[in-house]
Simulated assay, not measured.
Amino acid sequence: MERNNQGRPVRLGLVSMAHLHAYSYADCLMRLPKDQAEFVGIWDENEERAKENAARRGTRHFRDLGQLLAEVDGVVVASTNRRHEELVLAAVEAGKAVICEKPLSINAESGARMVRAARDKGVPLFTAFPVRFIPVVEKARELIRSGRIGRVLAINGTNHGQMPGGWFTDPEEAGGGSLIDHTVHVADIIRWMLGAEFTEVYAEYDRRLYDIPVEDCAILMMEVEGGVFATIDASWSRPRSFPFWGDVTMGIQATGGVIRLDAFGQTMTFYSDERMRPSWEFYGENADYRMIAEFARVVREGGPTQLATGLDGLRAAEVAFAAYEAGRRHQPVKLELVQI
């Protein structure tokens, strides 16, 4: 894909508003400096939803996906998980850069097809992992990569959240429940911090909290190249009354020190008589905005980036796929990564 080097703002579009994160991405696209990026418009399988959200943000809605793709340099895909491949491949075939919501795919073969298509077409494909853009996560990676805390021995991570409902609990549309939804963020930052692949996974998952057709809690135990042991608690265990949507935390034990990381720890407690319950209001940097702004920059200028690639998204998702297999077997599973 040719970089936009004509001095004009890069043209970006949003493909689908099905995912909860799409609303944040739409707001981020709207906030980008106008001399750097133009939010061309929204296509959605639900035309009324596209029309309403485009009008709210002062942009256009498109009835035809091809028309949107003809007018942009890159797109953000935020559909249901099942539709990622269809929509990513349409954008790639049109020669447009893509950043796709996580998980990249609902099975390894689907993810591999996307990554190969982007590679063969020479089109940038990224996965939406905004946790990479949280300053404390960046700092932890710097401390690990510089060797300041010695050799990492073990990592325990959590990604708890509220049960999102809707299509997220439909195994056909989502590909699973809390395990696939919440494993991939932490799996990605472990890979990004260590520069190493997972080699073995054991997991247990179940429905313990809600009467839904997918799992609402999961615990993963993994080995990483170099002998690092890691765990991830991936669950929808936060009730509606909880003061914040959830968390991303990590405890990193190394030969020369320990890191305790709370990615969303910058909160203040807010008491509202309207809500009749306290809430934790986050005042840290907006990681979604930093990620979308970096996507716009890369589409405009090219060059190195800390955005997660499509392959990064596939590798993180493969941890979740292996975890499902391990849970079915009730025994550890060796990770056999798809060759690209």
Results as ranks from 00 to 15, higher is better:
52 E>L: 10
19 H>Y: 09
169 T>E: 14
199 T>N: 02
316 A>N: 07
128 A>T: 00
38 E>S: 08
144 I>E: 06
174 A>F: 01
216 D>S: 03
174 A>N: 15
75 V>L: 11
289 Y>H: 12
52 E>Q: 14
162 Q>I: 12
78 A>C: 15
43 W>R: 10
150 G>R: 09
320 A>V: 06
49 R>P: 01
209 L>T: 05
40 V>R: 12
324 Y>Q: 02
196 A>P: 02
295 F>D: 03
8 R>M: 13
25 Y>G: 00
328 R>I: 00
55 A>R: 13
331 Q>F: 04
12 L>E: 05
79 S>D: 12
83 R>L: 15
40 V>Y: 09
198 F>P: 07
64 D>I: 13
327 G>V: 05
60 R>Y: 03
201 V>F: 10
156 N>F: 08
271 Y>H: 14
242 F>A: 13
339 Q>A: 05
85 E>L: 07
223 E>V: 00
68 L>S: 07
1 M>E: 14
219 I>D: 11
140 A>R: 02
212 I>K: 06
27 D>M: 02
124 P>F: 11
176 G>L: 05
120 D>T: 10
141 R>A: 14
59 T>G: 03
267 T>Q: 05
198 F>Y: 15
229 F>Q: 08
320 A>R: 06
323 A>E: 09
51 K>R: 15
16 S>Q: 13
124 P>Y: 10
35 D>F: 04
131 V>M: 12
17 M>C: 14
318 E>Q: 15
183 T>D: 02
225 E>L: 09
200 E>A: 14
270 F>Q: 00
228 V>L: 07
261 L>G: 03
266 Q>A: 10
188 D>G: 10
280 W>I: 01
104 L>G: 06
21 H>R: 13
340 I>F: 03
21 H>D: 09
41 G>M: 04
52 E>D: 11
277 R>D: 03
252 I>L: 07
242 F>D: 07
150 G>S: 10
134 I>D: 00
76 V>L: 15
298 V>K: 00
209 L>W: 04
86 E>C: 08
218 A>I: 07
338 V>A: 15
75 V>P: 10
313 G>P: 01
149 I>G: 08
18 A>K: 11
201 V>I: 15
241 S>W: 06
317 A>W: 00
279 S>I: 12
143 L>A: 14
162 Q>G: 12
266 Q>R: 10
290 R>D: 07
103 P>N: 06
32 L>E: 05
139 K>F: 09
287 A>D: 13
38 E>P: 04
7 G>V: 11
267 T>D: 00
222 M>P: 01
304 P>T: 00
202 Y>L: 13
29 L>A: 01
286 N>R: 13
120 D>C: 09
293 A>R: 14
176 G>R: 02
182 H>F: 11
317 A>G: 11
146 S>V: 03
11 R>G: 12
201 V>P: 08
270 F>R: 06
249 T>K: 09
75 V>I: 14
5 N>R: 13
146 S>M: 04
199 T>D: 02
138 E>M: 13
